[in-house]
Design a protein around this nucleic acid. Structure first.
Lengths: 254, 254
DNA sequence: TTTTTTTGTTTCATATTTAGAACTTTGTTT
DNA sequence: AAACAAAGTTCTAAATATGAAACAAAAAAA
């Protein structure tokens, strides 16, 4: 813990309370902020609605103010609005869960989803953030199309499942393939039993603005479907890019 | 606005930026916080990820940290709701009191219950917290499946009833057995006359998210029922885990 | 280009917050 | 009911943040 200013401390408290609700003493033991100070900060956070105190449990929770702020963010993301009808379309065509994400530095942030109506369907949580971008199709899209060309060198290649690619050379070849064909695939690399297909969305400057993809159980996303789905996702992503003002630069040479 | 402390001001900034992204001057005109101070607060908020500065637009916007905090809240809410129908099911099948609990550090917290319709039934109190996790089936589930692998070393093995296991080696063997078969049992170890059976619920990260179990008088929960109930509770717990997004990892948990 | 507006920085006396300890209250466990 | 643990309060000198104004830099406008 470096920062001593109260705002940094307040955010640290929120991060910890995000993991689970917590009593004062536990919070105190983790943060090592003096009792009187911690009390005062918690009081302000409760007053502002950022933290909720559940008296019966004597525990502090994240407050619902955070949920409403988050919904403001989601409401103000134009990508979400534009992608909406395309996501519906993609979901109907594939019968799988459709996910919309944006790059957030070296991480991926899921900003929307449309769940498959199938009884066996994938759980996706809006707002979740994953730093394991080497291990999922949407993540590999970031690696392949990020403005930061050295991004691959900056992330740890953690083994998440038995299928996760942790060899950097193999990953480089994979990324090269993704760049050429315009869509990515992963076979249970982030989660056992889950296969994903994803494609990049570009803004008017040609920068990666988002990732759209589908995710489903490996028994349903079979080999013969992958290429078909890949092209479908890619085409939908291109349509969204077009609405964002992107005009394809490469390959249109005259 | 009355508050002058920086946390309140920071939250005010977040609320205003929630409406729309904004340049410095506009924010300054609205808040009337001195320029230097406003700059300082914004800098801290950017450092913590709560605010994002879009350089090309020269505008401040809510940061994605808020989205991930919000997803934590959402992640922490659904257990009770999801478990509800399964608790009903379990109660109907066993005719015993069904308990839903969550791990709370080195303690167990009961967050829901469904009482047996039998006239002689166990009284369970929502919100009660027990630090005696070595002495009950749900508590042993925590010992067996907690993220904290050294948890057993950190708790006092108090003798609560004549049946309570207070020998750490014996408890270790018991925990190993629980890990293998996927459910726990206790014979009057926390309360004389009461037997419990419990199984772990895992979230999408594979962490212990809750414990579901049954509790009943020892004269009714007889030897021949224990194994059958154990498998039943385990199966129900697995169903709930699945709804929380957990996909069983090969050979990891049991 | 030069001017104007907006944004960001520096200074420093003053105001506020911090932190450690002792203490009170409240709830829990035995 | 007694013992204990957790939560919250109060007190201070010392540490830190604040804010007014002057300054500096960067965009936008003329």
């Amino acid at each position: 813990m470096k920062q001593k200013n109260s705002i940094s401390r307040a955010v640290m408290i929120l991060e910890i309370l995000g993991k689970r609700k917590m009593g004062f003493s536990e919070l105190y033991r983790i943060l090592l902020i003096p009792k009187a100070t911690l009390h005062r900060i918690l009081k302000i956070l409760i007053d502002t609605g950022m933290v909720r105190y559940i008296k019966e449990e004597r525990k502090y929770h994240l407050g619902y103010k955070i949920l409403s702020l988050a919904s403001e963010i989601l409401n103000n993301l134009p990508l979400r609005e534009i992608a909406n009808s395309y996501m519906k379309q993609l979901c109907e065509k594939t019968k799988e869960t459709v996910e919309l994400a944006i790059p957030d530095g070296k991480a991926i942030l899921y900003i929307d989803k449309r769940e498959s109506s199938e009884s066996i369907r994938l759980f996706a949580q809006i707002g979740s953030r994953y730093e394991t971008i080497h291990a999922s199709a949407p993540g590999k899209i970031i690696l392949a199309f990020s403005e930061d060309k050295e991004i691959l060198e900056k992330i740890p290649l953690k083994k998440i499942t038995d299928y996760t690619i942790t060899d950097i050379s193999e990953l480089r070849r994979e990324i090269e393939k993704i760049r050429k064909r315009g869509w990515a695939f992963d076979n249970q690399e982030a989660r056992v039993g889950v296969r994903r297909i994803a494609a990049p969305i570009f803004d008017f400057k040609g920068n990666l603005a988002g990732i759209i993809g589908i995710a489903g159980p490996s028994f349903r996303i079979k080999k013969e479907k992958i290429k078909k789905f890949g092209e479908l996702v890619k085409n939908i992503a291109e349509s969204i890019s077009k609405e964002l003002g992107y005009t394809k630069k490469e390959g249109v040479k005259w």
